[in-house]
Structures are given as structure tokens and as C-alpha cells.
Amino acid sequence: MKNLTIIFLISVSILSCDKTKRTDFKKIILTDFTKKKIDTLIPHKNKTYYSYYIKVKGEINDSVKIKRKDHYDIILIGNIDTLINGDYYGNEKIIWVFDPFKATKGELEIEYGL
């Protein structure tokens, strides 16, 4: 219980002091295909935006779903090297959902930004 409390407090202090919470760019490497990962891009104030994009590169043993919240699923399979993008003008947050779907193994390098 004591250890749990200490871990909790450390996590809280790290999370709450996270200066990257307003971010319009992320790069992650996905190797854990056991659970969904959700991440949000938040536009900077007073910055002009024209588009959003997501680059996915790597290899997986089956299919994954990548989805921009409220938009259609994008299903990617096997050996992947793709770029998806669209118009974006800085009015809203963009929430990305990375769903392992049928994939259980592999490595994906995902870069997404505004």
C-alpha cells in the first residue's frame, strides 16, 4: 500500500507538471499490441495550421486500426509505410486512437502532427 501511494504521488507530480500537454506533434514507437492507445494533439494558440498528418512505418503480424476520433477507421496490414493527411485549420483537438485489432506482434513507428 505504501509503495502504491508513493508511485501514485510520483505519477501525479510527473503528469501534472507535463509541459508537453499542449503539443501539435508526437512520435511514438508501438510495440505493445495488447491494449488500445489514445493520444490527443492540441494546437498551439496563435499558430497557423493547414493540415494534419500521420506517418506509419513498420511491420506487424496482422492488422491494426488507426482512427481519428469521429472519423472512419484506417486499417493497416503487414508491412506498412504510409502517410495519411488532410485539411486542418487549428480549430479543434485531434484525438488519435491506435487499436491493435488483430495484430499481436511487431513494431510500428508512428509520427503524427498538425
Binding site: 500500500m1 505504501k2 501511494t5 501514485f8 504521488l9 501525479v12 507530480s13 503528469l15 501534472s16 507538471c17
Partner: peptide, 20 residues
């Protein structure tokens, strides 16, 4: 011990909200 744990947890939650 229980009261202390609850106190620490409460402090942590308050710290979270304040810092954000």
C-alpha cells in the same frame, strides 16, 4: 496508517488539480 494513506492520497489529488 489508513488515515495517513487517505491523507496522502487526498493531498496528491489536490496537487494534481492545482498543478493543472
Amino acid at each position: 496508517y489508513k488515515s495517513l494513506t487517505i491523507g496522502i492520497l487526498f493531498f496528491g489529488i489536490m496537487a494534481f488539480f492545482n498543478a493543472c
